[in-house]
Nucleic acid binder design. Structure first.
Length: 687
DNA sequence: CGACGGGACGC
DNA sequence: CGACGGGACGC
C-alpha cells in the first residue's frame, strides 16, 4: 500500500505556505485570503472548495485521463494541469478542485500513493495544495518518531500509531539509498491523538529488533527550505508543547517559528461562521483553533480535536468554583487509597526501557488509583454536556481495532483513545495489534469512580476529557514501563498550566498523576489546590468563563519577572499574550469588582518561587521527577508544591531556553542571568 | 520584485 | 540520536 516513503496520505503540504496575508484574491491561487475574521465573509461562496495537488502525473496525461479518476471520489469542480508558463510543458502535476474538503479527503485516502495513472512511473501523490489546509482551517499534529526499526515500513508504523487515532500521514526519513534512517513523522489531525500516541509510545514501545523504545514527540518545526517564504505557517501545533528545554530553540519573542498563524477554524463551514470575538485569534500562536464556542458550536471541536483544545469552555454558563475544588478533592481521594507497591511488572518480552531518560525503574502503578474519572461522572448536569460532542470525523473512519465508538458523550475521548491501547507495549512481532481486548473504556468504574460523590459541577468537558485521557493512558502505559512516567509528565507539561485562571482541575490532574506516577500518593493535592486555587479563584464565577477562553496565565519566574504560560500549548512567553489581555478585559467587564483576578496567578507563582529555587539543584525536570520518585513519602506540602513547580518550572524553563537560543549562551545553572539579560535587551515584561 | 538574517552553551 | 517528501498556481 501506501507509499513507503511518501506516507500514507498526502497531508503534508503545510510546509511552504505563504505568509497567509496576501489578500490578492486573484482567482484561487495560493495566498488566497479566506474569510479570516474581519475579512470579507466569503466563507460561503468562494470558499467552498478544496484544492488538491496531484503529483506524479504522467506528462502525457490529459484532463480526460485524470478527471474521471477523481470524480469517483467526489464532486470535481476543476482539473487544472500545470504547465510551464513558457514552454507549455506539462509539469507532471495538476490541481484538482473538489467542492468539499470531505471529498478531497476521500480522494486522498483513496488515491494517494494508491493509483498509478497510465504511463505513470509511480502512484500519484495526492495532497492538499499549498495553503489549502490552512485555508480550510485544518491543523495537523506531526510527531517525530525515532528509534524505529529500519526495516519497518510506513504501513507498519501507521498500524502502531493508528491506535491512537487515524494517522493522516507517515513519512519515513530515508538516506540517499532509500534506507530508513530509523525515524520519521506521523501526523494526526487531532491533538489528543498525538498526545495519546506520545504518552503511550514514547519511551515505551520498542519495536522488534530495536534495543530502544520509540521516541515520540511533537516534531520540530520543519527546517525551512530555501526559497520558502518562511518557516511553517501553521501546524506544528505540538512543537510548542515540547518538553525538553534544551531543545527549545525559539526566540521568546513569541510567534516562534510556527508563530501566529492561526487559521480560522472551519472557515469553510457555512453553518458556523467563526463566531468568536476579536479576542480569540489574535494571539493564538498556531497551536490550534482555540476559539471557544460561544454557544454550542459543534464544529469547533472537529478540528480542535475535542478535549482541551477548542471546546474548552463552558457553553454559556460559568464554571463554578466549587467544582474545581471538589475535583481536586476527588482526584486526591482517588489517588490516595491505593498506594501501589513497587512491584515492577515487566513483560518478559519487554526490554528494559531505561535508555536515555535514565529514570529509575518504574514504580509499578496500580491501575485503580489512576483510573480516570469516569465519563459518567462528568457532570451530566452541566451545560456543556450538550455541546454536542463534536463528532470527530476520525472516529467514523476505518479504525481497525478501535472500531466503533459509541456515539456517546465520550466519543471524543474514545476516538482519541481507542480501546486498543496496547498493553503489551513491547512489539514482539511487528504486530501492533497486540492481543489486547480490554475495554478499558468500559472498565468497571471501580471504587474510586463512585467513591466520591463529589463531582465537579461544571468542568469543561474538554478539560475533563483531556484529563481522563491522560490518566487512562498513563495508567495503561505504566503497566509496562517506567518510561511512561516520564512520558506522562511530559504530557502534563504540555497541557497543564501551572497556575491558573483556567483550571484548577488540570493542575490537580497533574498533581494527581504525579502522585500516582511516582507512587507517592501522599496527600498534597488538597493543600495546593485548595489553599491556592480554591481560595483565590473563589471570587469569580464568571472568571471561569473567561478562563475557558484563555489558556494563558501569568506567572512569576524565579527572578520575579512575569511570564506567561499557555496551558494548552505549553508555550511560555515574556510578553502578555493578547489573548490573555483580552480575556482579562472581558473579565473585568463581567466582574467589575474582581480586580484581583489578574494578580492571582502572580501571587501563587511568587509563592512557589522559593520552591523552585530550592529545586534548582535538581537542574532539570527529569531530575526532579527522579527525585520525587525516590521519595518514599513526600511530605504533604513539599510534594504538592513540587508537583506544581515542576510544571511551572518547565514552562519557565522553556522561556529560559528560549532566551538562550535567542542568543544568550547561558545554561540553566546561570539561567537567571541569561533570562535577565535577555529581558533587559528585550523590553522586559513586567518590570 | 523579494523572501530569513544571526549563532552554536556545556555536560 | 535519526528532523521533513519532486514537481506547486496554468487557463
Amino acid at each position: 500500500m501506501s507509499g513507503e516513503g511518501s506516507g500514507e496520505y498526502g497531508f503534508n503540504t503545510y510546509q511552504q505556505q505563504q505568509q497567509q496575508q496576501q489578500p490578492q484574491l486573484s482567482g484561487q491561487k495560493r495566498g488566497f485570503s479566506f474569510s479570516g475574521r474581519g475579512g470579507s465573509p466569503d466563507r460561503f461562496d468562494r470558499g467552498s472548495f478544496a484544492k488538491l495537488f496531484v503529483g506524479s502525473v504522467p506528462r502525457t496525461a490529459t484532463e480526460e485521463d485524470i478527471r474521471p479518476l477523481f470524480e469517483e471520489h467526489g464532486n470535481v469542480i476543476e482539473v487544472a494541469l500545470i504547465k510551464d508558463k513558457k514552454t507549455g510543458q506539462h509539469q507532471g502535476c495538476c490541481f484538482i478542485k473538489y467542492t468539499t474538503s470531505e471529498d478531497a479527503d476521500q480522494a486522498i485516502r483513496a488515491l494517494h500513493n494508491q493509483h498509478t495513472l497510465p504511463g505513470g512511473i509511480g502512484p500519484i501523490q495526492v495532497r492538499y495544495a499549498d495553503g489549502e489546509r490552512e485555508r480550510l482551517g485544518a491543523v495537523e499534529y506531526k510527531l517525530f518518531v525515532g528509534s524505529l526499526n529500519k526495516q519497518a515500513t510506513a504501513k507498519e508504523i501507521e498500524e502502531i500509531f493508528s491506535k491512537y487515532g487515524r494517522v493522516e500521514d507517515v513519512y519515513l526519513m530515508r538516506d540517499e539509498n532509500k534506507q530508513s534512517r530509523g525515524c520519521g513523522f506521523v501526523k494526526y489531525s487531532n491533538r489528543d491523538m498525538a498526545l495519546s500516541a506520545i504518552n503511550a509510545l514514547n519511551g515505551i514501545y520498542t519495536m522488534r529488533g530495536c534495543d530502544q523504545p520509540l521516541i515520540v514527540r511533537f516534531a520540530d518545526p520543519k527546517r525551512p527550505r530555501h526559497g520558502d517564504s518562511r518557516g511553517p505557517t501553521f501546524g506544528d501545533p505540538g512543537s510548542g508543547p515540547r518538553l525538553d528545554p534544551p531543545g527549545a530553540r525559539f526566540p521568546p519573542n513569541a510567534s516562534v517559528p510556527m508563530g501566529d498563524r492561526m487559521p480560522p477554524p472551519n472557515a469553510w463551514r457555512p453553518m458556523h461562521p467563526p463566531n468568536m470575538g476579536p479576542s480569540s485569534n489574535a494571539d493564538n500562536h498556531g497551536m490550534e483553533p482555540q476559539w471557544f464556542p460561544r454557544s454550542g458550536d459543534t464544529t469547533l471541536a472537529i478540528n480542535a480535536g475535542g478535549p482541551m483544545t477548542g471546546i474548552g469552555g463552558p457553553i454559556d454558563g460559568c464554571f463554578k468554583v466549587e467544582s474545581l475544588t471538589s475535583m481536586s478533592q476527588q482526584n486526591f481521594n482517588q489517588s490516595v487509597p491505593h498506594i501501589p507497591p513497587l512491584n515492577q511488572e515487566i513483560s518478559p518480552l519487554q526490554k528494559p526501557v531505561q535508555s536515555s531518560q535514565e529514570l529509575p525503574p518504574a514504580h509499578q502503578l496500580h491501575p485503580e488509583p489512576q483510573a480516570p474519572m469516569p465519563y459518567s461522572q462528568i457532570p451530566s448536569q452541566s451545560s456543556f454536556r450538550q455541546v454536542g460532542q463534536p463528532q470527530l470525523p476520525l472516529s467514523a473512519g476505518k479504525q481497525g481495532t478501535s472500531g466503533q465508538f459509541p456515539t456517546t458523550q465520550s466519543q471524543i475521548h474514545q476516538s482519541a483513545l481507542p480501546a486498543s491501547i496496547p498493553r503489551v507495549l513491547h512489539d514482539t512481532n511487528f504486530q501492533p495489534n497486540t492481543p489486547f481486548t480490554t475495554n478499558q473504556q468500559q472498565a468497571p468504574p471501580s471504587v474510586h469512580q463512585r467513591q466520591q460523590p463529589l463531582q465537579p459541577h461544571q468542568q469543561s468537558p474538554s478539560q475533563l476529557a483531556q484529563m481522563l485521557s491522560h490518566q487512562k493512558q498513563t495508567l495503561q502505559a505504566s503497566l509496562h514501563s517506567s518510561q511512561q512516567v516520564f512520558s506522562q509528565l511530559q504530557q502534563q507539561v504540555q497541557m497543564i498550566q501551572p497556575y491558573s485562571q483556567t483550571s484548577t482541575m488540570q493542575q490537580n490532574a497533574a498533581i494527581a498523576n504525579k502522585q500516582q506516577s511516582t507512587n507517592s500518593t501522599a496527600a498534597p493535592i488538597g493543600d495546593v489546590s485548595s489553599s491556592t486555587s480554591a481560595t483565590t479563584v473563589a471570587p469569580g464565577i464568571s472568571q471561569n468563563t473567561a478562563l475557558a477562553k484563555c489558556n494563558w496565565t501569568e506567572h512569576l519566574s524565579p527572578e520575579g519577572f512575569k511570564y506567561y504560560y499557555n496551558s494548552v500549548t505549553g508555550e511560555s512567553r515574556w510578553e502578555k499574550p493578547e489573548e490573555l489581555a483580552l480575556s482579562e478585559k472581558q473579565q473585568q467587564r463581567l466582574l467589575g469588582q474582581h480586580s484581583q483576578t489578574q494578580s492571582q496567578p502572580s501571587m501563587i507563582s511568587a509563592h512557589q518561587v522559593p520552591q523552585m529555587q530550592q529545586a534548582q539543584p535538581q537542574s532539570d525536570f527529569q531530575g526532579q521527577i527522579l527525585h520525587q520518585q525516590q521519595m518514599q513519602q513526600p511530605s504533604f506540602q513539599a510534594y504538592g508544591v513540587t508537583g506544581h513547580q515542576n510544571v511551572q518550572d518547565v514552562g519557565y524553563k522553556q522561556l529560559q531556553a528560549s532566551a538562550i537560543s535567542a542568543g544568550d549562551p547561558g545554561r540553566y545553572s546561570n539561567g537567571i542571568h541569561t533570562t535577565q539579560d535577555w529581558m533587559w535587551k528585550n523590553k522586559p515584561a513586567g518590570v
